[in-house]
Structure formats: structure tokens, C-alpha cells
């Protein structure tokens, strides 16, 4: 499956791009993160500490153990600082 993967704030800066299409068979967000970590050092650096990251699936806040089945858009970002 092909998923749109989006990065925001320092995750975007560390990886060096705002979004990309990723072809993956990963069953969960955590499995996708493992695949991305294995790509290049900049991904490994961005995903070094998952407790510092949040994930949204199809624009809804989710968890790293959530399944990717049917998901079209995954976004990774640091804790939000609105208001």
C-alpha cells in the first residue's frame, strides 16, 4: 500500500521534507516507524525517541500501536503548542 506520510515542526526539519509517499506493508504505525528508521540517519534521528512524538492517522490523533489498515495519511509531529 502507498501512504502519504507528513512531518511537522522539528520532525519536518530533521527529516528535511514536509511530506512523501511511502510504499509499505507495515501493519502498525510502530512498524512503519521501524522501516523509516532503517532508511537513513536523518530518519533514525527524528524517530529516536517516540515519547517526544505524536501521530495522527487520517487527521485524527492516534497511537503508535494503532493498525495502518485502510489508513491513507500518517502525520508525525511533536506535542502540539497551540493557544
Amino acid at each position: 500500500m502507498t501512504i502519504d506520510v507528513l512531518y511537522f515542526a522539528w520532525v519536518r526539519e530533521r527529516i528535511g521534507l514536509p511530506r512523501e509517499k511511502v510504499v509499505t506493508q507495515a501493519a502498525t504505525v510502530a512498524a512503519l516507524v521501524d522501516e523509516l528508521r532503517g532508511r537513513e540517519e536523518r530518519y533514525a534521528a527524528a524517530f529516536a525517541d517516540l515519547s517526544a512524538l505524536r501521530v495522527a492517522l487520517d487527521q485524527e490523533l492516534s497511537e503508535f500501536d494503532a493498525p495502518l489498515d485502510g489508513v491513507r495519511e500518517v502525520a508525525f509531529f511533536p506535542p502540539m503548542t497551540g493557544g
Binding site: 511537522f8 522539528w10 506535542p79 502540539m80 503548542t81 497551540g82 493557544g83
Partner: peptide, 29 residues
């Protein structure tokens, strides 16, 4: 206000003469 602070997808970056830094979420939020 409490929910917008940590559940609305915004990220703030402060740019000073010394450089740029992302504002970190606080545990209190």
C-alpha cells in the same frame, strides 16, 4: 484554551537574535 493548547495541531517557533527554537509543550499543559 486548555484543549487548544495541546490538542489543536499548531507548533510555535521563536526566532530571536540568538537563533530559532521550537516552543516545547509543558507537562502542565
Amino acid at each position: 484554551m486548555d484543549y487548544l493548547k495541546s490538542r489543536a495541531p499548531f507548533w510555535k517557533k521563536e526566532i530571536t537574535r540568538e537563533g530559532a527554537a521550537w516552543v516545547e509543550a509543558r507537562d502542565a499543559d
